[in-house]
Write a protein that binds this DNA or RNA. Structure first.
Lengths: 189, 189
DNA sequence: ATTAAACATGTCAATATTTATATGTTTAAC
DNA sequence: GTTAAACATATAAATATTGACATGTTTAAT
């Protein structure tokens, strides 16, 4: 349903941007829940332009480099608002390769499983610590509800809670595997 | 990286199945983290057949209906095992339309936001209650680590924890919006 | 001056996924 | 006997996404 369309419109509604800058946005807070490569962004911008939802100005950077700075049109804002108001049913849960792997993990010996879980745990803890670091800038509390910062803040919070849940789950799995391993080793004695 | 290939191999490694039955599997525990439509499954089975990773027998059901029951080959099992052992880096977090919407939610009035959050909350609570119901069958504790049930159990647990985190997040967002609304109404008085 | 990293824009091919179209059989309920 | 739901297989078209190819400029460091 062309979600990228609305991701781009939403970003341009914050401020005019070039395609490159839109791509950069996916490196920050929003990137935790949406992203696209430049090979998808540029064609999407072209489409939005054709539909009259955005316009662009050429900006010269340095001597000759032409940057296209896109601005959302009134029509674009209207479509964005309409989309934002939509009360759509919860999506089906997203695909997750690691869980798929764990679903079949009974085929792995316990040591391999523990190794895989450990590796994921380290990475998620690292990710969480980065997210927590990012959260430090919000010492002043929740940003005003009518500013862009509000959106930044709540998705960051979601990302943090998400990592916490994943870590909790991995810990549990690790507990099951370690308990089984000890039981096996006890029997072996 | 053809993840569906391994999802199918993993399922066929549990027991021989028809394409239709593979599709059904995505309705249960596994469906929380992987799924595919039959229009993707049948071509995938054909590919696996060409690659010698599965074989099939024709089974007659009723008078004439031919069912193709696929079985994983030794080669298929080897590939599956190799894939299961792979220690791959954590994926980038999956896309989520509702969070994208909330990211731009500063453009919505507080009432609309609360309405959208409320709608999501109800749906997630319902989903959680279904998952908890499913969990009831595991009264006997964690299934043995070398059985299929183990996989069923841990992904179900992950799904439950996930819903709990989402609900926690939505509650927080709702709290922010309601607080802001009260503050606004206080000012209006 | 040189160089590397970041900035900047685009297309193309391949892969993945969804939606629609197509065609039937079997089973269980009425 | 009829009917509806579930079972069963498959292809085609459209959409979404990724990875590779292609080309160049600007900025900051050395």
């Amino acid at each position: 349903m062309r979600t990228l369309k609305f991701a781009v419109l939403g970003l341009l509604n914050r401020r005019p941007m070039t395609g490159y800058e839109i791509g950069k946005e996916f490196d920050y807070e929003l990137g935790q829940f949406w992203n696209a490569k430049h090979s998808q962004i540029y064609p999407e911008l072209k489409k939005l332009l054709d539909e009259g939802l955005v316009v662009f100005d050429i900006e010269i950077s340095g001597d000759i480099l032409e940057k296209k700075r896109y601005t959302i049109t009134e029509k674009g804002q209207l479509e964005l608002l309409k989309w934002l108001h939509k009360d759509e049913p919860v999506e089906k849960t997203p695909k997750d390769i690691f869980r798929l792997r764990m679903y079949f993990s009974n085929n792995l010996d316990l040591e391999s499983r523990i190794h895989l879980l450990e590796s994921q745990l380290i990475q998620h803890k690292k990710r969480l610590s980065i997210l927590n670091k990012t959260m430090e800038q919000y010492q002043g509390g929740v940003p005003p509800h009518d500013t862009d910062r509000f959106g930044d803040f709540i998705v960051l919070e979601s990302a943090i809670l998400r990592e916490e849940y994943v870590i909790k789950w991995i810990d549990k799995c690790m507990g099951y595997c370690k308990a089984a391993l000890e039981k096996e080793q006890g029997k072996a004695k």
